[in-house]
Write a protein that binds this DNA or RNA. Structure first.
Lengths: 223, 223
DNA sequence: GGCGCGCATTGATTTAAGTCAACCGGGTCC
DNA sequence: GGACCCGGTTGACTTAAATCAATGCGCGCC
């Protein structure tokens, strides 16, 4: 773990609650490692012993239906945690985790971290805050899935990816399109058609994984 | 608040972490009141100042789409909390709350409770545990919405309502059917048709809000 | 180069669920 | 009693999205 990594981890919202000494202690209980493209971190149902922080790369969290098809529940990017809530459900990961590209991760030991939580109210507050945000995100997700059309979800997703103040406004899709489709709860074909339609209306231009927005406001009011 | 109420509240998982003295103090900051059928507790977007515990009755938590249609996010029954995660999102309720029948509630003051959390690690642990369960529930919900058919969701819901070891196995729908439909993300007509179909296959019998299961195992393997 | 493979796109078709409309039975109110 | 409303059911029809199938394209590999 180089100094940039440590900086990223330390500045992540959660651990900012720790004193220098506590942070050092966390490091002694933390593992750092790299997974290669498509490697699996844990399977749905595996005993949950750690939670994770992404240093670089992308992690895909999925559910699999009995029928075999999979639904991407979340895509985790550098600077974010995942599976930290599982720590309290005592048991098993409710999703499986796989990386989409070479990905470097920090793993934090649940047992040790629970001990730390007992002695640090600030840390508790921060963890509760992140969990609460996650809940809010999931509620929004359900809202989207039940009250919005596929096209609206696509537009919402694109706008969400849009960084602040770029001109011309554009996004780069960093994950394969079929993964985005699953993330949005639609089929790849449907995603393709939605993008084609938006292109037809000259609201966006698509060049491979690069999407240029011609009229952000118009898109906003469609979502 | 009579002694049965106090017992229910005290035995609810969350507050069991409190000493007798702490519990008494919580009571001094807690309000108890009754809402009549269809009364609104808070609106989506209202500033969140309290969270709640249901003593009796049923609370409906909803989102409203721009189009005006609503999606029931959750139905909260006696012995359970709601809106406790909102406490950390600083701000506003992400759903609106309305009661389906005369309902008695305990309201707990966010500010005071946050203070209590700072001084009581056990309480933190319990709250994190309930939040984590909520997350798990929401993940399952998304799974259901994206990977299962409407019929499967109906069956799953019915089985979930089924109490342990009743013979003959049956459930009583305590909320109007159109509310259940919205809860499941389908239209009332669809719910009606699914039930009719199950009835046609002699898997269940329906008499108004009473549903008798003729073959629980067959239903289980359909869900 | 030629071959195969995976991903994306496009078209044709199917299907699950939504929409629209009619009807029924139970409750309430005049 | 009759008029009304509300919730649920059922039927006819529409529609959004899934499915199936064909094609194209980039890429690695022998």
């Amino acid at each position: 773990m180089d100094s940039a990594d440590i900086k990223l981890l330390k500045e992540g919202y959660l651990l900012a609650a720790l004193s220098h000494q506590e942070f050092e202690e966390v490091l002694t209980h933390a593992g750092v490692f790299t997974l290669m493209q498509n490697e699996c971190l844990f399977d749905q149902g595996d005993p949950a012993t750690h939670f994770f922080f992404v240093l670089s790369g992308t992690v895909k969290l999925c559910r699999i239906a009995p029928s075999g098809e999979e639904k991407v529940m979340d895509l985790v990017r550098p600077g974010h945690y995942f599976a930290e809530a599982v720590m309290f459900m005592g048991g098993r990961y409710p999703v499986y985790a796989r990386v989409l590209e070479p990905t470097r991760l920090v793993e934090l030991d649940n047992k040790h971290f629970l001990g730390l939580l007992r002695s640090n109210a600030d840390l508790c507050m921060r963890l509760m805050s992140t969990m609460s945000q996650r809940i809010h995100g999931l509620v929004n997700e359900i809202d989207n899935l039940t009250l919005q059309s596929g096209a609206q979800r696509v537009i919402g997703y694109l706008l969400q990816q849009l960084p602040e103040g770029t001109a011309p406004p554009s996004v780069r899709l960093t994950v394969p399109k079929h993964v985005i489709a699953s993330r949005l709860g639609i089929q790849p074909e449907t995603l393709s058609r939605v993008l084609a339609k938006l292109r037809g209306k000259h609201l966006i231009d698509v060049h491979d994984d690069q999407i240029v927005f011609n009229d952000v406001d118009a898109l906003r009011c469609l979502s």
